[in-house]
Every structure is written in structure tokens, then in C-alpha cells.
């Protein structure tokens, strides 16, 4: 593992576009290549906002702080530029794109990564896609279905993982904020992340989750607890285990003490 962080945020603050209240109130985070970080927090703590802000969702605006990705100022880049430089976000509830097959969708995404005038070879693409699907033990017919159109929760996750496998990001952000409800979907995500990280150990992963359960399947290197827009505790996997026992109560108390002070 190299020492230079792939992602480094300092005092990152953000709010919903055109609204007063800040949701992120200064997030400091450093992720190095190959590391798996988990961010856990109660509902409304800002963990899902962090994922969206990093991916460049237009519904949020950064009000302060910085974020650097692979040495570039991430906040200067458009959503699509971030993706092309290696940021990937797996959506918690990805939207449907009727009439567009997964294969077509991925082909367009890969084509967008090429220089102007360069054309993605269709046969090469087909080979990549089939090879990726085999790795993830998916049936080739899955890629012919329209993106997320009428998909079950598990199928949506499978689609997100397949995209991640094809696009090979340097940083994968998994927004699994309340997916603890669906155990099958959870297993799809875990198996996918583990398989892909085994294949490309340099890939960094940021897991956003509410429940410790996901961490039974993916072993994080670092766990951060986010409460009220700030990371209040960071440590190893043991942090997650203590949450399992004590819940977020002690952090909430910490938070109310902080705001009282």
C-alpha cells in the first residue's frame, strides 16, 4: 500500500443546493489505494450526503473545505469528469433507464473514456463484458435487460457491481445506507467488492452503511463514525463491533453535549 492518499478531504462542508443548513460540517478523511474504509452513522448524520458530494451530485453544494482525488482538486471536476478519472459510486437506489440495455449503457460509458475520434471496438467490448460477467457469476442474458427497469433489489445491486467491474475505478464508493434490510442484496455487494478487490488490490473502497451487518461480509481496514456531519470517531474494525453492542447512543450524547457547549 502506497503512502499517497487516493482521496483526501479536509474540513469538507456541504449543504443541499439553495438551502441554509449544512449537512456536512467539516469532514476529514484520508483513503490510500487498496484500503477499505467504512463510514457508519445514524440516520441523517450526513453519510449518504458525503457519498453524493464526492460523486458530484448537482443537488448538493460544497460550502467549504477541500477534496483531492489522486492529486487533483475533485471539487473542480464535473460529475462525468470525476467518473472518468476513477471515482465510482454504487447507488443505493439506482434509477431505471427504460429502453437502454446494460450492455449499451456500459459500452457508452466506456466509449466516453476514450479520446475524441477513438472508437471502442465492439468485439473487444463484448469480450470484456462477458469476461466480467463470468468473474461475477452472472448470466450473459442479464446484460441485455434494460438498466434497472423492473429490477429487484438484488438485481439492482448486481447491476451496480457489474458496472464497477467493467469501469475499474480507483475508488469505489458504496452507498448502502439502509440496505441492511435486504440480506440478498447485501451479499451481492459483499461478494462483488471482495472479488473485485482480490483482482485489483489497489482499488480503494469507501463503504457507507448504517448497520454493522455489511461488515460481517466485507472486512474494513478502517471504520469511521459520522454524527451530525462530522467524523467523531475513527479506528479499526473494533469500532464497528462496539457500535453493534452500544448503538449510536453514546455518540448522540456526545453530539448533544457538543451542541450544548
Amino acid at each position: 500500500m502506497s503512502d499517497a492518499p487516493i482521496l483526501k478531504t479536509a474540513g469538507l462542508r456541504a449543504r443541499v443546493t439553495d438551502e441554509e443548513i449544512e449537512i456536512l460540517k467539516g469532514v476529514d478523511l484520508e483513503i490510500r489505494p487498496g484500503e477499505i474504509h467504512a463510514i457508519m452513522g445514524p440516520n441523517g448524520s450526513g453519510k449518504s450526503t458525503l457519498a453524493k458530494v464526492l460523486a458530484g451530485h448537482p443537488g448538493y453544494e460544497v460550502t467549504g473545505g477541500s477534496a483531492f482525488f489522486d492529486g487533483q482538486d475533485l471539487l473542480e471536476l464535473e460529475t462525468d469528469e470525476r467518473a472518468r478519472s476513477g471515482v465510482f459510486m454504487a447507488f443505493q437506489y439506482p434509477v431505471a433507464i427504460p429502453g437502454v440495455s446494460i450492455a449499451n449503457f456500459l459500452r457508452t460509458a466506456l466509449q466516453a473514456r476514450l479520446e475524441d475520434g477513438e472508437e471502442l471496438d465492439l468485439f473487444d467490448f463484448q469480450d470484456i463484458l462477458l469476461e466480467r460477467m463470468e468473474l461475477l457469476e452472472m448470466s450473459p442474458s442479464f446484460a441485455e435487460r434494460a438498466v434497472n427497469d423492473g429490477f429487484s433489489g438484488g438485481e439492482k445491486k448486481r447491476n451496480e457491481i457489474l458496472q464497477m467491474a467493467v469501469l475499474e475505478p480507483a475508488l469505489a464508493i458504496m452507498d448502502e445506507t439502509d440496505s441492511g434490510l435486504d440480506i440478498d442484496a447485501l451479499k451481492v455487494v459483499a461478494r462483488g467488492v471482495n472479488t473485485l478487490q482480490k483482482e485489483r488490490p489497489e482499488m480503494a473502497v469507501l463503504l457507507i452503511t448504517h448497520y454493522q451487518r455489511l461488515l460481517n461480509y466485507i472486512q474494513p481496514d478502517f471504520v469511521h463514525v459520522i454524527v451530525d456531519g462530522r467524523i467523531v470517531r475513527s479506528g479499526g474494525p473494533e469500532v464497528a463491533l462496539s457500535l453493534e453492542e452500544g448503538g449510536y447512543r453514546e455518540y448522540r450524547q456526545l453530539q448533544s453535549t457538543a451542541s450544548a457547549a
Binding site: A83, F105, A109, R113
Partner: peptide, 12 residues
């Protein structure tokens, strides 16, 4: 906006 964001977050 969500559809556009989804596709753009894949690099389009």
C-alpha cells in the same frame, strides 16, 4: 436530474 446524474456518474 437523477437519471442524468446516474449516467454522468458513469462518465458520460
Amino acid at each position: 436530474e437523477e437519471q442524468l446524474f446516474y449516467l454522468m456518474s458513469r462518465g458520460m
